[in-house]
Nucleic acid binder design. Structure first.
Lengths: 191, 191
DNA sequence: TATGTCATGTAACTGGTTACATGATTGC
DNA sequence: GCAATCATGTAACCAGTTACATGACATA
């Protein structure tokens, strides 16, 4: 049986501070966005399950339409256990690489476009990460070092993506030159 | 409706050479292994669907218990269309980073172990990639450049993972020193 | 004849997304 | 009063995995 990792994300989020399901979803999207995601369809049922298991506690008060959840002592224990569990990585599925692998059918020009747009995305990511980095290094939050560790991963990855894009583009440009050279050889017959 | 990308992998695999479902699964695991995966439960139904749509063609002959599939002309057209479609990246889910983000609950020592084992994995990956690189650069396969592009991605990725592991470990080791310094300050009271 | 690999297939399950329905609260 | 956002929840759907059943073929 595969384990739902939503539980980790939910308990983890609430271990930082009590939140509503809605806020939890936003927090996950904003702070774990580059390596995690959750949808309402997962969060609300999970919160309900966790509450009936006594791992989180619903705080009444505040606005009527909202209820904040707080992690309980046994919730923290549970979270520690979950974090300690071995994580068999889910099989990687990278749509960009899947396409480039069969890129011969697309031709080098279109592949170059794919690569360039990936590079742009990586550049934007890098900027975001560097901005967060500045904030995080001034933070006194006891979690800050751990947040930095994951941020660092994002930065290294984005930088690697950029470097790869350069190398890959070089490779394909050489291939284009080669093809156009072959085409003009053939062109002599037509000329 | 989300698109099944299994179709791309299956048609793509068959565009390289005709294969049985079983061989297809192996080929995907071996050559796309670092950025893709498919299970039999996806492959066989997909092959059946593709066949009834006339996108692949079942070759009889060879051993009785096996049937190889060949991509048809319309299958190639379809594949080209699929490759051209925009690929909204599936939300990233990285179990290692999810754990490290909440790493304060684990403590720096355990986090260091997690990071070190990720580094070992990356080192092994790098070795594999470099071996494949040698082979691929000598290949005359017209797909070789595109295979190289994805291989390059794997190499950059693994190298980035290694570099990150170094940086992250440094960060956490400083944190451990800091904590033990604080602890020995407190220790004066006990001594 | 036994073992390992090649091979096909499916039923049950589950993790997860999407889309929608519904309403409270806030600020202009 | 209106729009934006905060907020909760669910039903329908889908992609994908796991586990199993079944058997052919090769070879030692």
């Amino acid at each position: 049986m595969r384990k739902s990792r939503t539980e980790i994300a939910v308990l983890g989020g609430l271990s930082v501070e009590p939140m509503s399901g809605y806020a939890l979803r936003n927090a996950i999207a904003e702070t774990l966005g580059h390596f995690w995601s959750e949808s309402y369809g997962q969060i609300y049922p999970t919160l309900a399950r966790l509450e009936s298991a006594g791992l989180v506690h619903r705080l009444e008060g505040g606005r009527a339409s909202s209820s904040r959840y707080e992690i309980t002592a046994s919730g923290l224990d549970r979270l520690r256990d979950l974090l300690r569990e071995p994580h068999d990585e889910s099989p990687p599925r990278n749509g960009l690489l899947l396409r480039l692998f069969f890129g011969r059918l697309l031709g080098p020009e279109i592949c170059l476009e794919l690569i360039e747009s990936a590079a742009s995305a990586a550049r934007r990511e890098l900027e975001t990460y560097e901005a967060i980095d500045v904030v995080l290094r001034q933070s006194t939050d006891p979690n800050a070092d751990y947040f930095l560790v994951t941020l660092l991963a994002g930065r290294h990855h984005a930088a690697a993506q950029l470097a790869w894009a350069e190398d890959a583009a070089d490779l394909l440009r050489r291939r284009i030159e080669l093809e156009s050279a072959t085409a003009s050889d053939g062109g002599i017959d037509r000329g």
